[in-house]
Simulated scan of single mutants.
Amino acid sequence: MTASMRVVQAQVAGKPFVLADVPVPDPGPGKVRVKVHACGVCAGDEIPRNGFLGTQLPRVPGHEIAGVVDALGDGVDMWNVGDRVGVGWFGGSDLTCDYCRRGDFLNCVDRKIVGSTYDGGYAQYMVAPQDAVARMPEGLDFPEAAPMMCAGVTAFNALRRSHAGPGDLIAIHGFGGLGHLAVQFARAMGFRTVAISRGRVKQELARRLGADEFVDSTATDPGDALHAMGGAVAILDTVSLGGLQSALVNGLKPNGQLLVLEGLDPIHVTGHNLVQPQLSISGRYAGHARDSEETLNFAVLRNIRPIIETYPLDRAEEAFENLSQANLRSVLLPQ
């Protein structure tokens, strides 16, 4: 008799998630099966929930996965049963296209998205290609590690690949589930860090996590505030609203960067405002499995941890609805 497992599925686009029982999947050639101990809930789970990006429903969401290798498919030579691992947004690449041959795996023409291209971590078990799996260091428990597989690696990669160096002024716009991790990474990298948020409710926490300065965006224009501080070398925007992103450009110093993570609204800025001080607006997102490993290792080295709230698998809908709750990363515990 085939063993079964509990999963949460997006079954109808735009409708609530549904708890279901399905067969435990077998790993095919080149793939590993992961016993999921924790899976973060992310705004990116809107993609399978709504059937975006060609997602075929039903689909099991979840791309912030932490667990243990449970079984190996034929030809797997990178992993052993019992390895502690994570699986993030990056779901594997073809390894043969021009981008992959240059090492630019995130732009693979046939890249996969975990929880969209194939079933993700709102489940007791999931299967992923071996190149999509990241090794997890000791020192992180599974619920702490899970949000690092998307929110963590996104913040870490954007900051370390910016033009900023130790002592430079950088700003984190938005102090929520991703922003509270970005402030911690920025502090650990040696930046002079400014947290920008609506109101002052989060000011004490922002400073406790490493912010040197705090800007209340309801009391002052954040671009003007940063300009008065001498300008930021980089601004990491986690709010993803075009009007707010546009206003931040004024807060950059010459040669500064606005690092944008998402957003459907147009960003309005004149060529003159970009050219005169040689500013740039750059898109950033997630990272591949090696990036995730480096994020996890750095988090252990510098004691960076997400603020989390945990839920059992059968409360996945509630966890998803609570995504807007301040400073929390919701994490499902499927086992």
Rank of each mutant, 00 (worst) to 15 (best):
G30E: 11
R84C: 01
D21C: 07
V22T: 15
P29S: 12
R59T: 00
Q56R: 14
G82P: 12
H37M: 13
T55C: 15
V34H: 02
R59L: 00
D83T: 05
G62Q: 03
M78K: 15
T55A: 15
A38N: 05
H63Q: 08
P48N: 11
P48M: 08
N50S: 10
E64A: 14
D26V: 13
P23A: 11
D83Q: 06
G75E: 09
V60T: 11
H37I: 02
G62S: 07
D45G: 12
G91I: 03
L57M: 09
A66V: 06
D77S: 15
T55W: 05
G51C: 06
H63P: 09
G75W: 11
V60S: 00
W79R: 05
R84W: 00
K35H: 11
I65S: 05
V22H: 04
P23F: 03
I65H: 09
K35D: 04
D83M: 05
A38G: 06
V68Y: 01
V22A: 12
W79Q: 05
P25N: 07
P58V: 11
I47F: 05
G28L: 10
P25G: 09
R33S: 15
V81P: 02
W79E: 04
D70Y: 11
C42K: 01
G44C: 07
G44R: 01
I65A: 07
V68S: 10
G40E: 12
G40P: 10
V36P: 04
G75M: 12
F52R: 12
V87Y: 04
L72A: 09
A43G: 08
C42F: 02
T55R: 10
G40R: 08
G54F: 10
V36M: 08
G91M: 02
G67W: 03
R33Y: 15
F90D: 12
V81N: 05
G91A: 06
V76R: 09
V24D: 08
P27W: 03
G75K: 09
